[in-house]
Simulated assay, not measured.
Amino acid sequence: MKVIAVLILFVACVAAGLQDFKVKTVHPRDRTNASSFDSRITNGLDAAAGQFPYQVALEFTGLFSSWFCGGVIIDNCWILTAAHCTDEALYVKIFYGALSLSSPAFTETVYALSFKQHILYSSSSLKYDISLIKTPHVAFNSAIDKVKLPSISATPQTYEGNIATTSGWGYTSDYNPNLAGTLQYIDLEVISNTECESVYGAVISDSNLCCKTDNGISTCSGDSGGPLTWYDGITWLIGITAFGSSEGCQKNYPVGFTRITQYLHWIKDNSGIYTP
């Protein structure tokens, strides 16, 4: 019996060790120190005027604090962002057509009654991290325009092995708690969910999309809810920035996004936007 007990204890310890090996994920708003992941662009490139007309900046205000996120225009009256950005917010200030946050084309303030946060979102999960914001009608031009959503009727792509682009005004390093002066962007390679799960464990699901990061080039605070796009002659929205490693932005762990193809029906049901 003693031998069996020792073996059981050994197996339990090994299992615990394997569990501990998995890197912990964290939503950007849960960042507690300068080394935690908080979606932002590190070691990125300066965007040119009009390069990302679908990108907006979102300054949220809650009861006791305020926070910064990104968002993406998907229609004249709709912005898509992460649920962990809208969660507990009272209102948001939207910056349209901005290359620098100090000089947007214009701003709008929208209150929480116009938020459509996924009803199943929970801060303890990586699922359902998606929200819609209904806005006053915005006229499109070269600086402000919508991005195209994938087709709801097409067979969903994994995008594995493709190069995707993400953008935002978030922090530019783990140790510089200031928003970028100019919109930043980076190109990242999409990896399989199996590879992502090997780092983060079973919290990764079909509703997630992950990209690998190398040489400290990553999303990192302020980029949450911002776009991940893929270009094949048309720019498609394939993800919104959602999570990463609690150990830091520049640790070369995969970064995670909400996979848009998993939520096209939800977007249609809550906004009326249909992409055949």
Rank of each mutant, 00 (worst) to 15 (best):
G244E: 07
Q51G: 07
D20L: 15
G181I: 07
I191T: 02
D129A: 05
Y253K: 02
L80E: 02
T107D: 11
G17H: 10
C85L: 00
S173I: 06
Y128K: 08
W169S: 07
G168R: 00
P156I: 01
G70P: 03
Q262D: 10
L113W: 14
T61F: 11
H118W: 07
Q262V: 06
S124H: 06
V72S: 04
A57D: 10
F243N: 01
E59R: 14
F115A: 02
S102T: 15
Y121P: 05
S207M: 08
H137T: 15
K146A: 11
L132N: 00
W67Q: 01
V138S: 03
I217N: 09
L80D: 02
Y274R: 10
D129C: 02
T25R: 05
A154Y: 11
Y54K: 06
N208K: 03
D30Y: 13
N215I: 10
A112V: 12
I144Y: 08
A105R: 15
A180V: 06
N270G: 00
T165D: 12
T213R: 05
G50F: 05
A105E: 15
Q51F: 09
S218A: 07
K22Y: 12
V11G: 10
L45D: 13
I79A: 02
E247G: 11
V110D: 07
P136W: 11
N215K: 13
I94E: 00
L188K: 01
R29A: 10
N176G: 14
K2A: 15
S114Q: 14
W236M: 09
A48D: 15
F10H: 09
V26C: 11
A16G: 14
D145W: 10
G216M: 04
I152P: 12
P156N: 03
S167Y: 05
Y121C: 06
Q157I: 06
I74N: 01
D20Q: 15
V92L: 07
V6K: 05
S114A: 14
N176Q: 13
Y54F: 10
S131I: 04
L90C: 13
P150N: 10
T158L: 02
C220E: 03
K22Q: 12
